[in-house]
């Protein structure tokens, strides 16, 4: 089990909190809520060790477009980068809805 923390600059506030996904095999849950400051904070708890670089690149890519000042907690049970991105997009979509 590994814990990864990352910070990103944000361009706008997020209006509400959103929860998607489940900590099941090959899946993850995302908890997204307004952050206390003007930045985005990500905390990843993952069952698979040694993928810090991959996490960073997926999250970098997500935040290029997202830009919300959100605190995001990810609880991961071995999801692929594709599934991670899908869940993040799903959460972002739900925030905008």
């Amino acid at each position: 089990m590994e814990r990864i923390e990352l910070d990103y600059p944000a361009r706008h506030a997020v209006p509400r909190r959103v929860h998607v996904g489940v900590v099941g095999s090959g899946d993850l849950e995302v908890l997204l809520e307004p952050s206390p400051d003007q930045r985005a904070h990500v905390l990843v708890n993952t069952s698979v060790d040694g993928f810090g670089v991959v996490w960073k690149s997926v999250l970098d890519r997500f935040f290029e477009r997202f830009g919300g000042a959100a605190s995001i907690e990810i609880n991961d049970f071995g999801a692929t980068p594709g599934t991670v991105m899908l869940r993040l997009e799903q959460a972002a979509e739900a925030v905008r809805a």
Partner: peptide, 16 residues
């Protein structure tokens, strides 16, 4: 966030 206090002690990711 009332998670299992016991799973992380055994290296298992807990659901929120």
């Amino acid at each position: 966030r009332l998670k299992s206090p016991w799973l992380p002690l055994q290296g298992i990711v807990a659901q929120s």
